[in-house]
Write a protein that binds this DNA or RNA. Structure first.
Length: 628
RNA sequence: GCUCUUGUAGCUCAGGGGUAGAGCACUUCCUUGGUAAGGAAGAGGUCAUGGGUUCAAUUCCCAUCAAGAGCUCCA
């Protein structure tokens, strides 16, 4: 937030550290800008930095750039590359730079009627003691601190990728610019490889696979961001819940169930209403109040005031589970001997995410957290955090998800959005930091990433198109115990305030399964696969034998189906492969005679014949061990 | 929420001012076949919704709803 402007401007030191690839991409951004300036001389350029997979340049332009323009843009870029213009650095005085900007000369091919408005703005942000440099390639002069490659001829392997819009300087109150994205690599081979990787990634997109494999459905009639789990998806979710459930028992959690709504007063106490009203579904107003209000002809604004003041009461779809769990904790008196109390629930919550934010399973409006709240003493905080991290590690380890990063979210010292005593924050932050060091993986401390009520550790993974998603989370909370006046009786026979820890190893079932679909590209390990075994009789004659094997496997709880369609076995195999079924059992005359099945694995191929008993044992063991 | 793009059969998509087409899936028939597609026939659509322009709109225009990309946001 506060640092978004700083992010726009790299320090000189950071610029010196720009990698060769970033330098190349940044230079290609200038080539892009040169091409756009040729095609549309009235273009006003803002910033054009390298980014993770390429670069972009922000431009304000009457003409709406569409993918249809890409050929023309790339054509111009190729000419500029071919001309092999030198990237020339020139140090100028502030006054000179300003003069050029006033005459529209910056980020342009020549003087213009209008000043280079964004460049003037950017000039003003450059610290007094910093030198001001221009980079020139051909007639294109741009205000730029560099660094660049030597010549435009170095920028051969590029591609214009997409165009989107972005707020100037990342501030939603600023005008929106057209952001043209491109990518560039050292050579064509690397570029082609990158483009192929993107194509492959599209194939494992969870939204596509969710449809192909019949895992989930989002229906307009139900609502945006509200996920319907279809039978296949439900199997995966249930297996994951069982898996977590087993570990909860081992770690001394108690399972609870709570309703999906709670009174507004509950959230007034927690501080979530009306503070977070914008990101909640509107309250459900009590019947009697509703009627009275309607009779009064109460308007919308009035209603909202009355809700805020508490004059009218109602219920809120729960945006989180904490208050309910707190009330469970509070329904008993607690001695220090009882602590920690660990309450776990797969709790469904509802949040009014902005419509532009919704997407697939990863950002939704109703989702189920594998939530738990731990109420403990100050002394227990560290061990409890360790326990939580242990659980996250077990989860990610079992699923083979090792491509994640750990983020320790600390408060932003300059912001006032945080509640609670700074001394307690310090304590919580150091507890988390200490716990994170025991993790054995690198972690990054990120100021400003804390929740408003406390610091946290997040496990972040990337989806197929490189977007980061927060999955598992462990958060310390000194705030809610205060607001609800939680207490336990200490060994000194006087009341003390417990500390709360929120934790969710998956984060939400929706997001986690979405990410998991992409992680496995739909090829779930046998224990998670909606259909674990498919039996393929060679012809109609062997359907009865297939059915007999089916019955035996079902006894062991194996999820199995028989494909009795009137098709050749090749076609049946193809279908089973497309459905990503781990095991195919082929039954024909040979197998019938020996009471065997021919085993084919979706990745390993033909594995030869086994007796039904042997196959059963093998698969049951594989499932029980949750092997990958 | 903002900008842009998109919305045609269950799925993937083509088409285009004169009320629609392919492949896969589905149904039926022929075929009884050994490790990624055997053949034939059939059924299936108010072309997202609501307005407007027009003799005529699924096609053009506007709005709404939804999806996608990016930005902003994410207790």
């Amino acid at each position: 937030m506060a640092d978004s402007q700083e992010k726009q401007r790299k320090t000189l030191e950071e610029r010196d550290q720009m990698s060769d690839l970033e330098r190349l991409r940044h230079s290609t951004a200038h080539v892009l800008a040169t091409a756009i300036a040729k095609l549309w001389p009235d273009a006003q350029f803002a910033a054009g930095p390298p980014v993770e997979n390429g670069f972009y340049y922000d431009v304000d332009l009457e003409h709406r750039i569409t993918p249809d323009d890409f050929d023309a843009i790339e054509g111009e870029m190729k000419k500029i590359v071919k001309e092999n213009q030198v990237f020339e650095k020139e140090i100028v005085s502030r006054a000179e730079a300003l003069k050029m900007a006033q005459s529209g000369r910056l980020a342009a091919l020549g003087d213009r009627d209008t000043p280079s408005v964004f460049k003037i703005d950017l000039l003003e942000e450059i610290p007094e003691d910093e030198e001001i440099s221009l980079y020139k390639n051909g007639d294109f002069w741009d205000l730029c601190a560099g660094p660049h490659v030597g010549r435009t001829g170095n920028c051969k392997a590029f591609k214009v990728m997409s165009v989107a819009s972005a707020f100037y300087k990342g501030d939603a109150s600023n005008p929106q610019l057209q952001r043209v994205y491109g990518t560039a690599f050292k050579n064509r081979t690397l570029l082609t490889e990158h483009l192929e990787r993107l194509e492959e990634a599209k194939l494992r997109d969870h939204r596509k696979l969710g449809k192909d494999l019949d895992l989930f459905h989002i229906d307009e009639a139900v609502g945006q961001g509200l996920v319907l789990w279809k039978p296949n998806g439900a199997v995966i979710r249930q297996e994951l819940q069982n898996f977590i459930g087993e570990h909860l028992v081992r770690q001394g959690y108690s399972q609870v169930f709570t309703p999906h709504i709670g009174k507004l007063d509950l959230y007034r106490t927690s501080g979530h209403f009306p503070y977070y009203a914008d990101s909640q579904f509107p309250p459900v107003i009590e019947k009697e109040s509703m009627k009275a209000l309607a009779d009064e002809g109460c308007g919308c604004g009035e209603l909202s005031n009355k809700l805020e003041s508490g004059e009218v009461d109602g219920f809120l779809l729960k945006p989180m589970n904490c208050p309910h769990h707190i009330k469970i904790f509070q329904s008993n008196h607690h001695s220090y001997r009882d602590l920690p109390v660990r309450l776990a629930e797969f709790g469904t919550v509802y949040r009014w995410e902005q419509s532009g934010e919704l997407g697939g399973m990863t950002r939704v409006r109703g989702f189920t957290q594998d939530d738990a709240h731990i109420f403990c003493t100050e002394d227990q905080v560290k061990d409890e955090i360790l326990g939580c991290l242990e659980l996250v590690k077990i989860v990610l380890g079992t699923l083979g998800m090792d491509d994640y990063r750990v983020r320790v979210g600390l408060r932003d010292p300059d912001s006032s959005k945080y509640v609670g005593d700074p001394a307690k924050w310090d304590k919580a932050e150091s507890a988390l930091r200490e716990a994170a060091t025991t993790l054995g993986t690198d972690f990054a401390e990120e100021p400003g990433e804390a929740a408003f009520y406390g610091p946290k550790i997040d496990f972040v993974v990337k989806d197929v198109i490189g977007r980061e998603w927060q999955l598992g989370t462990v958060q310390v909370d000194y705030n809610l115990p205060e607001r609800f006046g939680l207490e336990y009786i200490g060994s000194d026979n006087s009341p003390h305030r417990p500390v709360m820890i929120h934790r969710a190893p998956f984060g939400s079932m929706e997001r986690f399964v979405g990410v998991l679909i992409e992680h496995f590209a739909g090829k779930f390990p046998t224990w998670l696969a909606p259909e674990q075994v498919r039996i393929l009789p060679i012809s109609e004659k062997f359907v009865d034998d297939a059915q007999a094997v089916y019955d035996q496997l079902r006894e062991d709880g194996i999820r199995v189906k028989v494909d009795s369609a009137d098709e050749k076995v090749g076609a049946k195999i193809r279908l089973a492969q497309l459905d990503r079924i781990p095991y195919m059992l082929i039954i024909g005359a040979k197998e019938q005679e020996l009471n065997q099945v021919s085993v084919r694995h979706r990745d390993r191929g033909d594995e030869g014949a086994l007796s039904v008993v042997d196959f059963r044992e093998k698969v049951v063991a594989e499932i029980a061990s949750r092997s990958l």
